[in-house]
Amino acid sequence: MTAISDRPQMLPEEFEEFARLLARTAERIRPELINGKLGVKPVPDGDHGRMIQWLLRICIQARPELYLHDQGLKIQGYRGSFARPDGTLAHADAFVGTGEWAETSDVLMVAEVTSYDSDTNRRDRVEKPRAYAEAGIPVYLLIDRDSAEVTVYSQPDGVRYETAQILPFGKTVHLPEPVGISLDTEPLKNWVR
């Protein structure tokens, strides 16, 4: 049996074809290619979706010119990568005319909500902060359901984020510029197991 993970890395064009095929056959997973490693993330559950709705509403109320998109991103770095953040904050028309995978130049923030699976630690807490920082995305918001904490990564230096602020659910979180939005995270307590 030949497995994709047996290869040292998957080429970006191979991933795009694989993702198209998988989308037609698999209903409960979403593929990602982070730093040349193929990964999948489960389709979000209801609480996960509600957290994204909460964030979307706050972003639209605070900054009506922005939108929290469900957009796949080409994360250019040392190896080709493709990620589908739970939310991608950019101007409302930032991705008009792009395909399934867009460049990151217009992205102000990406947001992830952890899933209850064994891969979430590696994917959301280790690989994605590095990949998003390498792509120069100004802010990475991680809503961590396991620890009931929010982590705000900022000041990417092209390799990593220089700042990571961790606050428990219930505190007010300030998303730095270019986002410039404050989040009252008290409601997040209602959507964790």
Rank of each mutant, 00 (worst) to 15 (best):
P42A: 12
P42R: 01
P44G: 11
G46Y: 13
G46H: 09
D47K: 09
H48Q: 05
R50C: 01
I52A: 09
Q53K: 11
Q53P: 02
W54T: 09
W54Q: 03
L55K: 07
L56S: 15
I58G: 07
I58P: 03
C59P: 04
A62G: 09
A62H: 12
R63C: 13
E65L: 10
E65A: 15
L68A: 04
L68F: 12
H69Q: 11
D70I: 06
Q71Y: 05
K74A: 12
I75G: 02
G80F: 05
S81F: 02
R84N: 12
G87W: 07
T88Y: 03
L89P: 00
H91C: 10
D93P: 06
A94K: 07
A94S: 04
F95L: 04
V96I: 15
T98V: 13
E100Q: 14
W101G: 05
E103K: 06
T104D: 08
V107L: 02
L108S: 00
V110I: 14
A111T: 08
A111P: 02
E112Q: 11
S115K: 07
Y116R: 10
D117A: 14
S118L: 13
S118F: 06
D119I: 13
R125D: 06
K128Q: 08
R130T: 15
A131W: 04
A131N: 02
Y132N: 08
E134L: 08
G136L: 01
G136I: 00
I137W: 08
V139W: 08
L141V: 09
D144H: 02
V152G: 02
Y153F: 06
Q155M: 09
P156R: 12
P156K: 05
D157G: 01
D157S: 01
V159E: 12
R160N: 11
Y161G: 10
T163N: 01
I166P: 03
L167G: 08
L167W: 01
P168M: 12
P168N: 00
F169P: 03
K171V: 01
T172E: 06
T172A: 13
V173P: 04
H174K: 15
H174Y: 05
P176H: 04
E177Q: 10
E177A: 12
P178G: 11
G180Q: 06
G180F: 06
S182C: 05
S182G: 04
L183W: 06
L183V: 11
